[in-house]
């Protein structure tokens, strides 16, 4: 019964294979360095994957809608620098600044979404340009030398623990439940899949497509801001090392490994194991001392392998049907 469901439901199959893959990687890594499998280290891994996981949720939504968001990396950087500089270690400033940054994220993402929806500028170009603008804004604001530091409150969110469990992991779990619920049950989220599969048909079915595109890009930017806040809380200071292009690529990789396609096929939930796999592999490579180089190469290889596996599933049947039908 369960097996049959897994066989027939693509998204379930993706999820199960991702979980198996995580177990496999952990198993192999555990054989090399048993220390890796200690509960403490596993929790640390979960904590590390939180910022990427949050951003990947946003990126997945954009990808499922048929677009791509190349600006998330810069938005994370921007959040970190602004948060540190504006809060300057004071608790009473934290909440206003967080609200301000969230509003700024919505504004940035919303602007990208608005122009994409209204003018038809390709999402890749729009968000790349936006990324350039945000980075320029950052540099102008900080003069290239970021300052300030996070407040205790922000530090609690980013680095604090409740018992053995990091606060950021708890935040992530709550956030993930909200987002998954939103994209399953609420029309603004659920329609995302339809936009990606056939934008025109969605329009003709009465979906307010333009508003939805604005929402999706605003959502992605908001997620990037949240992820930047968690980063800031963990690192404690502003730095240009946070976020950036590599982080953006990681978010795309997480979304794709999570089984999400530009055709609206997939599930936003896939971003979570996707992000965990990326974090896990990076962590293993770092412990092997081949951090940067290895990460790049492994990431590319995994993307290609996973995509080949996924297309083997849907791609083949699609091709076959095309030939038979008509």
């Amino acid at each position: 019964m369960l097996l049959e469901r897994i066989r027939n439901d693509r998204n379930l199959k993706v999820m199960v294979s991702l979980l198996l893959m995580i177990i496999l990687i952990l198993g192999i890594a555990g054989m090399i360095t048993p220390r890796l499998l200690q509960p403490g280290h596993l929790i640390e891994l979960a904590r590390q994957s939180v910022p990427l996981g949050i951003t990947a949720l946003g990126q997945s939504a954009v990808i499922l809608s048929g677009g791509i968001d190349l600006s998330v990396g810069s938005i994370v950087t921007m959040t970190n620098i602004l948060a540190a500089d504006m809060i300057r270690g004071r608790d009473n400033r934290t909440i206003p600044v967080v609200l301000f940054l969230l509003a700024l994220g919505i504004l940035i993402g919303g602007t990208s979404g608005f122009l994409i929806a209204k003018t038809g500028i390709p999402p890749m170009v729009m968000t790349f340009a936006m990324s350039s603008i945000v980075r320029g804004g950052d540099l102008l604001y900080s003069g290239g030398a970021p300052g300030g530091r996070a407040s205790p409150m922000l530090r609690f969110f980013g680095a604090g623990r409740v018992g053995p469990v990091p606060v950021s992991v708890i935040i992530f779990i709550i956030l993930a439940i909200l987002v998954l619920f939103w994209f399953k049950k609420v029309r603004t989220g659920r329609s995302t899949y339809f936009l990606g599969n056939n934008f025109r048909a969605a329009k003709y079915a009465g979906v307010p497509v333009e508003r939805r595109i604005v929402f999706i890009y605003a959502f992605s930017a908001t997620m990037a801001v949240l992820s930047g806040l968690i980063f800031s809380g963990y690192i404690g200071v502003g730095s240009f090392e946070v976020g950036g292009e590599a982080f953006m690529l990681n978010s795309v990789a997480s979304a794709v490994i999570g089984g999400n396609t530009f055709l609206g096929i997939g599930n936003i939930a896939g971003a979570i194991p996707g992000a965990f796999i990326i974090t896990l592999i990076n962590s293993i490579l770092r412990s092997l001392g081949i951090a940067v180089t290895g990460q790049h190469i492994m990431q590319g290889v995994i993307i290609i392998v996973m995509v080949v596996l996924y297309t083997g599933q849907i791609g083949f049947s699609r091709k076959k049907l095309k030939k038979a039908g008509g």
Binding site: I68, H296, Q299, G300, I304, V308
Partner: peptide, 17 residues
């Protein structure tokens, strides 16, 4: 029949590495 954006992103990552 893979998505060009994804494939070239991945090979870009590998070559960059």
């Amino acid at each position: 029949r893979l998505e060009p954006l994804i494939v070239t992103l991945a090979t870009g990552s590998i070559v960059g590495g």
